[in-house]
Design a protein around this nucleic acid. Structure first.
Lengths: 360, 360
DNA sequence: TTGTACGCGTTATCAT
DNA sequence: ATGATAACGCGTACAA
């Protein structure tokens, strides 16, 4: 029952050779007689011997492993990317160590620990915020890449890391321009927080303002809804938060003549939450209110009405993330910053302003 | 820049003591002067020293780590549980090694590897199928628990493992009974596959049949929709699959007089997909068709109409999973099989048969 | 209570 | 091409 742990020494003894020869066979070294190698490998297979990775890691400088640090594991947007990343990493015969980062921490400490303890060769940060992590990141001894992270570290040269993302400002600009061209004037944006300088949310707010500016329109700051003003949580991107905020907004303005006619939510999940509040206020989508999300979750095409959203090419981005990281790891290339184009998928939740309103 | 790796020796030298004293301080040994211990811990904190887990694992028989093997990481139902499990494991000062299992494999081999290489002390299987894994599981040297896994291993005594789940048969029975009492007679069920004997799907089909039987009604086998009959994929629980199957079913039966009036989808995701197909067929929910899901995803309360679903107490189940595993690991208790009660949350998607139909 | 020295299983260096 | 041996960083007898 209790299989005695079999070591490299046992193999050596059984094969009548030294441990170093066995090690050579294990690690595909060239300086070994093919015949002895074959004999050893055969013996290994028979005994079912597997090298102890602890001992291996203790001695080896490098392990074939990378780490993926995900902030927000409940977000379908990220889990969708994990699947692709996992496949890509496995294809390269590397191990992927997956770690979920609790809200509050940025995970750089976890990353450092992973480098120290598990000797991972590279790190993928999936989501999260890193504006204040420059100094900690500098201590990281391995290449790292920010994938779909809007908040790059300040205080850190761009040549020190790689990144893969969409252009948040430009894509947001695209969205708002579309709404403006549909005749919407009072366009609200639901974003996370104004507290951090360079969050994804603020980048998208930047695009929002830019679009207004370029059309020669003024921005109504009161139409920028910050979730952090209403709820006390780190998990901004929740259905409930969006619901709560929009509910309150619509109560305030319900009887105002000039309610906003379009709402851009900076994530699809927020859009789902917001839409419930809009419906409960007795407003029809898109008749009374156009809604746009961001991410391109599969789900947006399955709810009713289907939701216009900016689709991020997640599969491509995930692939590029792994490819870029490995290129840097193997020295085949330097750090790069890849920007992928999003695509605005027009669905049922948006119409020309005034169209389809429910006053039949 | 390049922070030289700091070891226990460095700490010993800096504190003017031997390595064993440092080790004692690290591992909360009793035979150490509280003062020296404090001084050492202070020094450790200042230097940011962290013991190398590889070296530690090489020496130690046991590592404070458990593994969580998740099948279907894109499923919000599971990721929601991960968060709780993670917190609970951390609270016990253990490391949680998270591994996503690709579809096709049951992950038992991965588990064995984790035991061998990472020396994990216990394993949580989150989702998946294990009917044919009995023999492989027997070789596992550590306690393991199936959490929200409907397909327990055959050919393996129940005292060999623990489990946490709802009673799939009973909860399904509850759902169908409710529909029958609402006057529905032709009730369809959308399930995954008939190929495996004891899948979650088949357990729920069993409850479905039982409910009919107990009401003295006959089961119409043609109303049991198996996704595997229509799509060739391992990922049965996808929006798209549900959509495809129900779309086809409604095309077939659209003009039949006796279309089914209620649909029970064995997961909430399937319900979302199915509802799109139902809407596209020109049918109203719940007017023409009542729909019920299973799992209790938060999202079900945010779509329109809100969807009646059987809520699984995920937080409780996740906590119980960790607690039970640790009890077995520490020898504080034997293997157990916990069954949690689900709760049928009635929402807008279900009505009494005939009520609210759209022939105004 | 504390320090010294050895061993955990593997890889890398060196001699042969 | 091969084998002996020294590390890797830590835990722990054992000695003091």
């Amino acid at each position: 029952m209790t299989k005695e742990t079999i070591t490299i020494k046992d193999i050596a003894r059984m094969c009548g050779c030294g441990v170093s020869t066995v090690s050579r066979a294990l690690n595909n070294h060239t300086d070994i007689n093919p015949d002895t190698k074959e004999a050893i490998l055969k013996c290994i297979k028979e005994t079912g011997f597997v090298p102890n990775s602890m001992a291996r890691g203790l001695k080896r400088t490098e392990t074939k492993a990378i780490a993926v640090l995900i902030k927000g594991i409940t977000n379908p947007f990220f889990t969708g990317m994990i699947k692709v990343i996992e496949a890509e990493v496995e294809r390269r015969d590397y191990e992927m160590i997956l770690h979920s980062i609790e809200s509050g921490s940025d995970g750089v400490e976890v990353a450092a620990e992973l480098v120290r303890e598990k000797k991972v060769q590279g790190i993928i940060f999936l989501g999260g915020r890193f504006e204040d992590s420059g100094d900690d990141l500098k201590k990281l001894q391995v290449p790292y890449i920010f994938s779909t992270v809007g908040t790059k570290p300040e205080n850190l040269d761009k040549s020190m890391y790689s990144s893969v993302a969409v252009d948040d400002v430009a894509e947001s600009y695209k969205i708002i321009t579309y709404l403006l061209e549909q005749g919407h004037e009072k366009i609200a944006i639901l974003t996370d927080t104004s507290m951090r300088k360079s969050s994804v949310g603020n980048l998208r707010v930047e695009g929002y303002k830019k679009a207004f500016f370029d059309k020669g329109k003024e921005v109504d700051e009161s139409l920028i809804f910050y979730i952090s003003d209403y709820v006390e949580t780190d998990e901004f991107f929740s259905l409930k938060n969006a619901y709560t905020v929009i509910k309150e907004k619509l109560m305030d303005e319900r009887f105002a003549q000039d309610r906003f006619t379009a709402l851009f939510c900076i994530s699809d999940l927020l859009a789902i939450g917001a839409m419930k509040a809009i419906r409960e206020a007795g407003l029809s989508i898109p008749g009374d209110m156009s809604v746009i999300g961001f991410d391109g979750l599969e789900m947006m095409d399955y709810v009713s009405p289907t939701v216009t959203t900016l689709v991020q090419p997640t599969a491509l981005m995930a692939k590029a993330t792994v490819e870029l990281l490995f290129d840097v790891m193997t020295g085949q290339g330097g750090n790069e910053h890849l920007v992928f184009p999003g695509e605005l998928m027009i669905k049922e939740s948006t119409v020309h302003c005034g169209d389809g309103s429910n006053n039949v």
